[in-house]
Write a protein that binds this DNA or RNA. Structure first.
Lengths: 193, 193
DNA sequence: GTAATAATTTGATATAGGTCAAATTATTTC
DNA sequence: GAAATAATTTGACCTATATCAAATTATTAC
């Protein structure tokens, strides 16, 4: 069974939060489409408004922005997670975030217009959004705490914990910018012990 | 007109995000209750599960946690904002966050059970939650960015910007722990220029 | 499979901001 | 409104991590 032919895994994801009626299942299946990205491919360019949200089946996507000509990684997304440029996607305005593929990635995507249609016609989708955002919320708070009062090493250890399944697949430079430390420091942290 | 007698301001807040039916208005008015806190008063103790969410009319509440016996400020909330211990409130489990009043504060509160009732019976409340969480989301991302790669001074400048209306009312030590810098450093930053 | 390019490591400094300690100033409390 | 307590400031010193530079290793493209 090829992921290109089925929306099974993503429906299972929704069912972690809400019960899906047959009607909603079929609407979702119609509106969610498969897509794949080559390693290094630019998934979304910040010069546009972000109109698609991607749900990852396999691989890793990264959100980043440019500061003083350098890419700063914002966060990494692995299987079973949604990625988009949040403010751009929700507010339909431009924002600073780019998305690219750290490795070959298989995903689904939904267009913002389809999502709005679903929100308007299936109140349980609003609930899904509320509940799934809640979990992301917790991660944000934890991350904020891991960035205050902690040494570079503690930050890295925390990073390994939050990204336990994918951290070893992310290039050092991207990890360093994610943590707000230099590559050199991160390299030395990895070298010791 | 005393805020103790009316839920007008909070209804206006909801209407920034959704249209309120008469039925929902009356349900909200019945379930939302006024409360006030003295300066320094503990609003919520982390030893309990957080069952109330507070909407501030006047004053400042602070969320903090204890690390190595010291209070670390997580965030500050002024007028027109909700405060609770997010994970505790939503997951009905204990978490690390305390809430106290930095100054005399007038607020409303709603019990989590009433909120659940509203979510279950008024789909527009789900929408309200989704939309209002979205704005908080943006603030979190900005804060994460302000904490990476910025000097102590830049962090403080960013803090002044995000809390432009209340920053001068928050004691130095609380600001320092919020920013993840020492009191001494913050004092020096304030002294210069 | 070799050349070109990119990523990572290693080394030698420099510095922002931490720590500890004490002095000063502001705020409570009775 | 004086005494007690808490908050903030100032000073001296130290350390973690940044910076700059160059060497090494890994990856990509032809």
């Amino acid at each position: 069974m090829n992921i290109i032919d089925t929306t099974e895994n993503i429906l299972a994801h929704f069912e972690k939060f809400i019960k899906l009626s047959e009607k909603l299942k079929s609407e979702l299946s119609q509106r969610i489409k498969p897509i794949e990205f080559k390693k290094g491919e630019l998934v979304f360019d910040a010069k546009h408004i972000c109109t698609k949200s991607y749900f990852i089946i396999k691989g890793i996507l990264r959100t980043y922005f440019i500061k003083n000509g350098k890419e700063i990684s914002e966060y990494f997304c692995g299987a079973d997670e949604w990625v988009n440029s949040p403010k751009s996607f929700m507010q339909r305005e431009k924002d600073i975030y780019y998305i690219d593929a750290i490795e070959y990635t298989e995903a689904y995507f939904i267009h913002v217009n389809d999502l709005v249609y679903l929100f308007d016609n299936f109140p349980e989708m609003e609930r899904y959004a509320r509940l799934s955002m809640g979990t992301v919320f917790g991660h944000f708070m934890e991350r904020i705490n891991s960035m205050r009062f902690t040494s570079a090493k503690e930050k890295y250890v925390h990073f390994q914990k939050t990204y336990s399944t994918i951290y070893h697949r992310i290039p050092l430079g991207m990890v360093a910018s994610y943590l707000g430390i230099t590559q050199e420091t991160l390299s030395r942290i990895r070298a010791e012990k």
